[in-house]
Amino acid sequence: MPPKKDKNAKEQPEELKIVVFGSGGVGKSALIVQLIQNVFVEQYDPTLEDSYRKDTHIEKKPVILDILDTAGQEEFCTLRDQYIRQGEGFVIVYSVTNRNSFDEVYSFLEQIAQAKEFDNADEYRNLASETAVVLVGNKADLKNERVVSADEGREVAKKFGNITFFETSAKTRTNVEESFMDCAVQIMNKVKKRKKGACTMM
């Protein structure tokens, strides 16, 4: 007979690896610190690479979000492929007050698609079905400084296979938890799907 499961034994949390990409100054670190510590950090030294962990529950299962905050500066873009290979899910951040940071979203999404071995632009439309990706327009509280509309963000999300899109504010905590949790749920669903596919093939 198989050994009985101990009802009191704690279920081991599943670790979900989320990588956060975006240009310098869009508020990646501020979003993560707000998620983890419930505080808004206004001044932040440019990040080289930082890792954060958050214990939470998804569908009553314990999980650990292992979040990698990457450098936004261009000189570190050679490391991106490595980050993409390590990551299970990706949060791509731009600032609604910075048109250049929005334009750079394409290169992040294309690099993820290429690393995941989609070879051409047509296949990028499948990105959402294969990979956990969330597009985030941050600094939505700065209404008077906005230069990128929510519709433009939605349009890019649609182009890459209807990836999830949120507008956030690290300052007011708007949609901060929602965007990271959405990415985590996507990872878990895709892991389940892969396991199911592997079982079917056996």
Rank of each mutant, 00 (worst) to 15 (best):
E117S: 10
A121V: 12
Q82C: 11
D81L: 05
C77K: 14
Y106I: 08
A128H: 08
D122G: 10
A128Q: 10
D122V: 00
D122Q: 11
T70D: 05
Q114L: 15
Q114F: 14
N100Y: 10
Q114H: 15
L109R: 02
C77R: 15
F90K: 02
E110G: 12
D103Q: 14
D119N: 15
R125F: 12
A115F: 08
A71T: 03
E104V: 02
G89N: 08
G72M: 09
R125D: 11
A71K: 01
E74P: 07
Q111E: 12
I84T: 04
F118K: 09
R85L: 11
N126W: 14
S95D: 03
L109M: 08
Y83R: 01
I112H: 07
R99W: 04
I112C: 04
D119K: 15
S101M: 10
E117K: 13
N100G: 07
G72I: 04
D103G: 12
A71D: 08
K116A: 07
C77N: 15
A128N: 15
Q86A: 14
E117H: 14
A71E: 09
Y94Q: 05
Q111I: 06
T70N: 03
E75W: 06
E75A: 09
V93W: 07
Q82E: 10
A121N: 04
V105N: 01
G89P: 07
Q111H: 10
S101W: 14
F102S: 03
Y83L: 05
D81T: 13
T97S: 13
A115N: 14
N98V: 09
Q73S: 08
A115R: 08
V93H: 03
Y124H: 07
F118Q: 07
R85W: 00
Y106R: 14
R125E: 13
Q111N: 13
E104M: 10
C77D: 15
K116V: 07
Q82R: 10
L109K: 00
D119P: 09
L109C: 06
V93Q: 08
N120V: 00
E88R: 00
E123S: 00
Y124D: 00
V105R: 00
R85N: 07
F108Q: 05
F118A: 06
L127Q: 02
A71L: 02
E110L: 06
E123Y: 01
I84F: 01
E110T: 10
F102P: 04
E117C: 04
S107L: 11
A128E: 09
Q114M: 12
E117L: 09
I84C: 06
Q86R: 12
V91C: 02
E110K: 15
R125V: 11
F90I: 09
A115Y: 02
F76M: 01
F90H: 08
Q73V: 02
Y106V: 12
K116Y: 00
A71M: 05
R125L: 09
E88N: 00
Y94D: 03
Y124R: 00
I112Y: 06
A113V: 05
A121Q: 13
F118S: 07
I92T: 04
I92C: 09
N126R: 15
Y94H: 09
I112W: 06
F76P: 03
N126I: 10
T97C: 15
K116L: 04
R99E: 15
R85H: 06
D81I: 10
Y124A: 00
F90C: 06
A128F: 04
